[in-house]
Protein backbone atom coordinates (compact mmCIF):
# COMPACT_ATOMS: atom_id res chain seq x y z
CA UNK A 1 0.00 0.00 0.00
CA UNK A 2 1.37 3.42 -0.96
CA UNK A 3 2.54 5.89 1.64
CA UNK A 4 1.48 9.52 1.23
CA UNK A 5 3.81 12.28 2.32
CA UNK A 6 1.98 15.34 3.57
CA UNK A 7 2.03 17.78 6.50
CA UNK A 8 0.24 18.93 9.59
CA UNK A 9 -1.31 22.40 9.64
CA UNK A 10 1.84 23.72 11.33
CA UNK A 11 3.96 22.50 8.42
CA UNK A 12 5.47 19.45 10.12
CA UNK A 13 5.94 16.53 7.70
CA UNK A 14 3.65 13.56 8.09
CA UNK A 15 3.28 10.21 6.37
CA UNK A 16 -0.10 8.54 5.98
CA UNK A 17 -1.38 5.28 4.60
CA UNK A 18 -4.04 5.45 1.90
CA UNK A 19 -6.62 4.42 4.47
CA UNK A 20 -5.56 7.18 6.88
CA UNK A 21 -5.65 9.71 4.06
CA UNK A 22 -9.24 8.85 3.19
CA UNK A 23 -10.22 8.85 6.87
CA UNK A 24 -8.85 12.38 7.29
CA UNK A 25 -10.52 13.59 4.10
CA UNK A 26 -13.85 12.23 5.32
CA UNK A 27 -13.41 13.68 8.82
CA UNK A 28 -12.50 17.11 7.45
CA UNK A 29 -15.54 17.42 5.23
CA UNK A 30 -17.78 16.07 7.97
CA UNK A 31 -16.52 18.70 10.43
CA UNK A 32 -17.31 21.52 7.99
CA UNK A 33 -20.68 20.05 7.06
CA UNK A 34 -21.73 19.84 10.71
CA UNK A 35 -20.48 23.31 11.63
CA UNK A 36 -21.86 25.08 8.58
CA UNK A 37 -24.96 22.94 8.15
CA UNK A 38 -23.89 22.44 4.54
CA UNK A 39 -23.46 19.40 2.30
CA UNK A 40 -20.35 17.26 2.81
CA UNK A 41 -18.19 16.56 -0.24
CA UNK A 42 -19.38 13.74 -2.49
CA UNK A 43 -17.52 10.46 -2.90
CA UNK A 44 -16.25 11.66 -6.29
CA UNK A 45 -14.95 14.92 -4.80
CA UNK A 46 -13.22 13.06 -1.97
CA UNK A 47 -11.73 10.68 -4.54
CA UNK A 48 -10.42 13.69 -6.47
CA UNK A 49 -8.83 15.08 -3.32
CA UNK A 50 -7.36 11.65 -2.63
CA UNK A 51 -5.79 11.66 -6.11
CA UNK A 52 -4.34 15.14 -5.58
CA UNK A 53 -2.68 14.10 -2.31
CA UNK A 54 -1.42 10.90 -3.93
CA UNK A 55 0.43 12.71 -6.72
CA UNK A 56 4.14 12.01 -6.27
CA UNK A 57 5.18 15.57 -7.14
CA UNK A 58 6.26 18.44 -4.99
CA UNK A 59 4.38 20.99 -7.10
CA UNK A 60 1.05 20.23 -8.73
CA UNK A 61 -1.24 22.40 -10.82
CA UNK A 62 -4.58 22.60 -12.58
CA UNK A 63 -5.24 21.25 -16.05
CA UNK A 64 -4.83 23.84 -18.82
CA UNK A 65 -8.03 25.82 -19.19
CA UNK A 66 -8.84 25.76 -15.46
CA UNK A 67 -6.56 28.66 -14.52
CA UNK A 68 -8.06 31.42 -12.38
CA UNK A 69 -7.18 34.98 -11.49
CA UNK A 70 -4.32 35.38 -8.99
CA UNK A 71 -4.52 38.45 -6.77
CA UNK A 72 -2.45 39.84 -3.91
CA UNK A 73 -3.59 41.99 -1.02
CA UNK A 74 -1.43 44.35 1.03
CA UNK A 75 1.60 43.74 -1.20
CA UNK A 76 2.99 47.22 -0.65
CA UNK A 77 3.08 46.46 3.06
CA UNK A 78 4.34 42.90 2.82
CA UNK A 79 7.28 43.68 0.57
CA UNK A 80 8.64 46.06 3.23
CA UNK A 81 7.95 43.55 5.96
CA UNK A 82 10.36 41.09 4.34
CA UNK A 83 13.06 43.75 4.23
CA UNK A 84 12.88 44.75 0.57
CA UNK A 85 13.32 48.47 0.89
CA UNK A 86 11.50 49.78 -2.14
CA UNK A 87 8.85 52.46 -2.18
CA UNK A 88 5.24 51.52 -2.72
CA UNK A 89 5.05 52.30 -6.42
CA UNK A 90 8.14 50.21 -7.02
CA UNK A 91 6.51 47.47 -4.97
CA UNK A 92 3.46 47.54 -7.23
CA UNK A 93 5.68 47.38 -10.31
CA UNK A 94 7.56 44.42 -8.86
CA UNK A 95 4.30 42.55 -8.24
CA UNK A 96 3.02 43.42 -11.71
CA UNK A 97 6.13 42.71 -13.73
CA UNK A 98 8.00 40.10 -11.72
CA UNK A 99 5.37 38.32 -9.64
CA UNK A 100 2.83 38.43 -12.47
CA UNK A 101 0.01 39.61 -10.17
CA UNK A 102 -3.40 39.89 -11.83
CA UNK A 103 -4.57 42.59 -9.42
CA UNK A 104 -2.70 44.57 -6.81
CA UNK A 105 -3.52 46.71 -3.83
CA UNK A 106 -1.92 49.93 -2.71
CA UNK A 107 -2.00 50.16 1.06
CA UNK A 108 -0.41 52.01 3.92
CA UNK A 109 1.72 50.22 6.49
CA UNK A 110 -0.81 51.26 9.16
CA UNK A 111 -3.37 49.07 7.46
CA UNK A 112 -6.66 50.37 8.90
CA UNK A 113 -9.16 52.90 7.54
CA UNK A 114 -9.13 54.97 10.74
CA UNK A 115 -5.48 56.12 10.48
CA UNK A 116 -5.86 56.57 6.70
CA UNK A 117 -8.50 59.28 7.17
CA UNK A 118 -6.16 62.09 8.35
CA UNK A 119 -3.52 61.28 5.73
CA UNK A 120 -5.81 60.51 2.84
CA UNK A 121 -4.67 63.51 0.82
CA UNK A 122 -1.11 62.22 1.12
CA UNK A 123 -2.18 58.76 0.00
CA UNK A 124 -4.09 60.01 -3.04
CA UNK A 125 -1.07 61.32 -5.01
CA UNK A 126 0.74 58.00 -4.45
CA UNK A 127 -2.24 56.17 -5.92
CA UNK A 128 -2.50 58.65 -8.79
CA UNK A 129 1.19 58.24 -9.64
CA UNK A 130 0.95 54.48 -9.34
CA UNK A 131 -1.99 54.44 -11.73
CA UNK A 132 0.09 56.28 -14.33
CA UNK A 133 2.92 53.77 -14.29
CA UNK A 134 1.15 50.40 -13.93
CA UNK A 135 -1.50 48.63 -15.94
CA UNK A 136 -2.53 45.92 -13.46
CA UNK A 137 -5.97 46.61 -11.86
CA UNK A 138 -5.21 48.54 -8.71
CA UNK A 139 -7.20 48.50 -5.49
CA UNK A 140 -6.74 50.80 -2.55
CA UNK A 141 -7.34 48.87 0.63
CA UNK A 142 -7.23 48.68 4.41
CA UNK A 143 -8.92 46.90 7.31
CA UNK A 144 -12.11 48.19 8.94
CA UNK A 145 -10.36 47.14 12.20
CA UNK A 146 -13.05 48.21 14.66
CA UNK A 147 -10.74 47.42 17.54
CA UNK A 148 -9.08 50.77 16.87
CA UNK A 149 -12.25 52.64 17.90
CA UNK A 150 -12.30 51.47 21.51
CA UNK A 151 -10.14 52.50 24.43
CA UNK A 152 -7.19 52.79 24.69
CA UNK A 153 -6.93 53.17 20.89
CA UNK A 154 -10.19 55.02 20.34
CA UNK A 155 -12.92 57.05 21.99
CA UNK A 156 -15.42 54.37 23.02
CA UNK A 157 -15.40 52.22 26.16
CA UNK A 158 -13.65 48.89 25.65
CA UNK A 159 -16.26 46.11 25.41
CA UNK A 160 -13.61 43.59 26.49
CA UNK A 161 -13.45 45.42 29.81
CA UNK A 162 -17.19 46.04 30.17
CA UNK A 163 -18.23 42.47 29.37
CA UNK A 164 -16.38 40.72 32.24
CA UNK A 165 -17.88 43.29 34.64
CA UNK A 166 -21.31 42.14 33.53
CA UNK A 167 -22.09 45.32 31.63
CA UNK A 168 -23.30 43.53 28.52
CA UNK A 169 -25.58 46.35 27.39
CA UNK A 170 -22.75 48.86 27.81
CA UNK A 171 -20.46 46.64 25.75
CA UNK A 172 -23.09 46.30 23.04
CA UNK A 173 -23.68 50.06 22.97
CA UNK A 174 -19.96 50.56 22.51
CA UNK A 175 -19.85 48.12 19.58
CA UNK A 176 -22.83 49.94 18.02
CA UNK A 177 -21.02 53.27 18.36
CA UNK A 178 -17.85 51.92 16.72
CA UNK A 179 -19.85 50.85 13.66
CA UNK A 180 -21.11 54.38 13.01
CA UNK A 181 -17.61 55.87 13.20
CA UNK A 182 -15.98 53.13 11.14
CA UNK A 183 -18.53 53.52 8.35
CA UNK A 184 -17.74 57.24 8.15
CA UNK A 185 -13.99 56.55 7.94
CA UNK A 186 -14.27 53.77 5.35
CA UNK A 187 -16.60 55.81 3.15
CA UNK A 188 -14.41 58.91 3.51
CA UNK A 189 -11.23 57.11 2.42
CA UNK A 190 -12.99 55.12 -0.30
CA UNK A 191 -14.58 58.24 -1.82
CA UNK A 192 -11.17 59.90 -1.98
CA UNK A 193 -9.48 56.89 -3.56
CA UNK A 194 -12.29 56.46 -6.04
CA UNK A 195 -11.90 60.12 -6.97
CA UNK A 196 -8.19 59.50 -7.51
CA UNK A 197 -8.93 56.73 -9.99
CA UNK A 198 -8.66 53.49 -7.99
CA UNK A 199 -9.94 50.45 -9.89
CA UNK A 200 -11.43 49.13 -6.69
CA UNK A 201 -11.66 49.45 -2.92
CA UNK A 202 -10.61 46.48 -0.82
CA UNK A 203 -11.97 45.98 2.68
CA UNK A 204 -9.59 43.43 4.14
CA UNK A 205 -9.72 41.12 7.16
CA UNK A 206 -13.38 41.91 7.70
CA UNK A 207 -14.80 40.50 10.92
CA UNK A 208 -11.49 40.54 12.83
CA UNK A 209 -13.19 42.38 15.69
CA UNK A 210 -16.45 40.45 15.46
CA UNK A 211 -19.74 41.27 13.83
CA UNK A 212 -19.34 45.05 14.22
CA UNK A 213 -16.52 44.81 11.68
CA UNK A 214 -18.76 42.96 9.24
CA UNK A 215 -21.69 45.32 9.74
CA UNK A 216 -19.56 48.43 9.20
CA UNK A 217 -18.17 46.92 5.99
CA UNK A 218 -21.61 46.03 4.65
CA UNK A 219 -22.96 49.47 5.50
CA UNK A 220 -19.98 51.20 3.89
CA UNK A 221 -20.28 49.05 0.76
CA UNK A 222 -23.99 49.82 0.54
CA UNK A 223 -23.39 53.59 0.79
CA UNK A 224 -20.55 53.56 -1.73
CA UNK A 225 -22.41 51.41 -4.24
CA UNK A 226 -25.43 53.69 -4.11
CA UNK A 227 -23.23 56.74 -4.55
CA UNK A 228 -20.99 55.22 -7.26
CA UNK A 229 -22.85 52.39 -9.01
CA UNK A 230 -19.76 51.57 -11.10
CA UNK A 231 -17.38 51.18 -8.11
CA UNK A 232 -15.73 47.82 -7.50
CA UNK A 233 -15.69 46.76 -3.85
CA UNK A 234 -13.91 43.67 -2.62
CA UNK A 235 -14.68 42.24 0.80
CA UNK A 236 -12.04 39.89 2.20
CA UNK A 237 -12.89 38.11 5.42
CA UNK A 238 -10.87 37.46 8.59
CA UNK A 239 -12.19 34.07 9.67
CA UNK A 240 -14.57 31.31 8.72
CA UNK A 241 -17.48 32.49 10.85
CA UNK A 242 -18.46 35.88 12.19
CA UNK A 243 -17.33 36.06 15.79
CA UNK A 244 -20.23 36.99 18.04
CA UNK A 245 -18.72 39.67 20.26
CA UNK A 246 -22.04 41.54 20.44
CA UNK A 247 -24.37 38.64 19.84
CA UNK A 248 -27.43 40.52 18.66
CA UNK A 249 -26.10 42.87 16.01
CA UNK A 250 -28.09 42.81 12.78
CA UNK A 251 -27.88 44.22 9.28
CA UNK A 252 -31.08 44.44 7.24
CA UNK A 253 -32.85 42.46 9.97
CA UNK A 254 -30.41 39.55 9.84
CA UNK A 255 -28.27 38.58 12.82
CA UNK A 256 -24.61 38.57 11.82
CA UNK A 257 -22.93 36.53 14.55
CA UNK A 258 -22.12 32.95 13.66
CA UNK A 259 -22.53 33.34 9.89
CA UNK A 260 -20.43 31.03 7.71
CA UNK A 261 -19.11 31.92 4.21
CA UNK A 262 -22.16 30.68 2.26
CA UNK A 263 -24.32 33.01 4.37
CA UNK A 264 -21.83 35.90 4.45
CA UNK A 265 -21.67 36.09 0.66
CA UNK A 266 -25.41 36.62 0.33
CA UNK A 267 -25.23 39.70 2.57
CA UNK A 268 -22.18 40.92 0.68
CA UNK A 269 -24.13 40.64 -2.57
CA UNK A 270 -27.04 42.53 -1.03
CA UNK A 271 -24.70 45.33 0.04
CA UNK A 272 -23.39 45.67 -3.52
CA UNK A 273 -20.01 44.01 -3.02
CA UNK A 274 -18.38 43.10 -6.35
CA UNK A 275 -15.93 40.40 -5.26
CA UNK A 276 -16.09 38.32 -2.09
CA UNK A 277 -13.04 36.79 -0.40
CA UNK A 278 -14.07 34.06 2.05
CA UNK A 279 -11.71 32.53 4.60
CA UNK A 280 -11.36 29.15 6.25
CA UNK A 281 -8.86 28.89 9.07
CA UNK A 282 -6.20 26.18 9.19
CA UNK A 283 -6.09 23.93 12.25
CA UNK A 284 -2.40 23.43 13.02
CA UNK A 285 -2.91 20.17 14.88
CA UNK A 286 -4.76 18.45 12.04
CA UNK A 287 -3.35 17.13 8.78
CA UNK A 288 -3.28 18.96 5.48
CA UNK A 289 -5.84 16.50 3.96
CA UNK A 290 -8.21 17.14 6.89
CA UNK A 291 -7.78 20.90 6.57
CA UNK A 292 -8.16 20.95 2.80
CA UNK A 293 -11.22 18.73 2.74
CA UNK A 294 -12.79 20.92 5.41
CA UNK A 295 -11.87 24.21 3.72
CA UNK A 296 -13.17 23.03 0.35
CA UNK A 297 -16.47 21.99 1.87
CA UNK A 298 -17.00 25.53 3.18
CA UNK A 299 -15.74 27.18 0.00
CA UNK A 300 -17.78 24.99 -2.31
CA UNK A 301 -20.96 25.84 -0.39
CA UNK A 302 -20.06 29.52 -0.75
CA UNK A 303 -19.23 29.30 -4.47
CA UNK A 304 -22.39 27.30 -5.17
CA UNK A 305 -24.71 30.02 -3.88
CA UNK A 306 -22.70 33.06 -5.02
CA UNK A 307 -23.68 35.19 -7.98
CA UNK A 308 -20.57 37.42 -7.66
CA UNK A 309 -16.94 36.38 -8.21
CA UNK A 310 -15.34 34.51 -5.31
CA UNK A 311 -11.64 35.04 -4.63
CA UNK A 312 -10.78 32.57 -1.88
CA UNK A 313 -8.14 33.67 0.63
CA UNK A 314 -5.12 31.36 0.39
CA UNK A 315 -2.07 32.07 2.47
CA UNK A 316 -0.42 31.56 5.82
CA UNK A 317 -3.01 29.87 8.05
CA UNK A 318 -5.99 30.16 5.72
CA UNK A 319 -7.42 28.11 2.86
CA UNK A 320 -5.75 24.92 4.18
CA UNK A 321 -2.33 26.51 3.76
CA UNK A 322 -0.01 25.77 6.67
CA UNK A 323 0.77 28.34 9.36
CA UNK A 324 4.25 29.20 8.10
CA UNK A 325 5.76 32.51 7.00
CA UNK A 326 6.58 31.02 3.63
CA UNK A 327 4.38 27.99 3.29
CA UNK A 328 5.67 24.86 1.51
CA UNK A 329 4.82 24.64 -2.17
CA UNK A 330 3.53 21.06 -1.91
CA UNK A 331 0.74 22.26 0.37
CA UNK A 332 0.04 25.57 -1.40
CA UNK A 333 -0.14 24.01 -4.86
CA UNK A 334 -2.33 21.09 -3.74
CA UNK A 335 -4.69 23.43 -1.91
CA UNK A 336 -4.86 25.77 -4.92
CA UNK A 337 -5.47 22.96 -7.41
CA UNK A 338 -8.18 21.40 -5.29
CA UNK A 339 -9.91 24.71 -4.59
CA UNK A 340 -10.03 25.61 -8.28
CA UNK A 341 -11.08 22.18 -9.53
CA UNK A 342 -13.71 21.35 -6.92
CA UNK A 343 -15.15 24.73 -5.93
CA UNK A 344 -15.35 26.43 -9.34
CA UNK A 345 -14.09 29.61 -7.74
CA UNK A 346 -13.10 32.72 -9.65
CA UNK A 347 -9.77 33.70 -8.22
CA UNK A 348 -7.24 33.22 -5.46
Amino acid sequence: MATILTRYGDGTMLTMSEKELMQDLEAGTQDAAERGNIPALSKEELAHLFDIFSLPYNFVSVEPGNEVVLTYDAGTLKIRRVGVNVDRIQALQIYEKIMGADTMELCHVDYSFKPIKPIVTMEQPILEQALLSTHVPLFYGAMPNLGTYTQPDGPFPNPSELMPMGDIEGARASYDATVEEAVKDIVYAARAMHASGADGINLDTVGAAGEADFKASLMAADILKKEFPEICIELGMAGEFILGMHGEMEWEGIRLAGMYPHEQVKLAEKAGVTIFGPVVNTNTSESSPWNLSRAITFMKACCDVATIPIHVNMGMGVGAVTVNDHPPVDVVSRASKAMVEICRLDGL
Binding site: V68, V69, T71, D102, T103, P137, D199, G200, E230, C232, T274, I275, A306, T307, I308, P309, I310, R344, L345, D346, G347
Partner: peptide, 11 residues
Protein backbone atom coordinates in the same frame (compact mmCIF):
# COMPACT_ATOMS: atom_id res chain seq x y z
CA UNK B 1 -9.84 40.30 -13.34
CA UNK B 2 -10.78 43.68 -14.82
CA UNK B 3 -13.94 42.21 -16.29
CA UNK B 4 -14.80 40.58 -12.95
CA UNK B 5 -14.27 43.93 -11.24
CA UNK B 6 -16.16 46.04 -13.76
CA UNK B 7 -18.99 43.68 -14.66
CA UNK B 8 -19.12 41.34 -11.66
CA UNK B 9 -18.82 38.35 -14.02
CA UNK B 10 -17.77 34.97 -12.72
CA UNK B 11 -14.70 33.28 -14.17
Amino acid sequence: ARVQMARGMRI
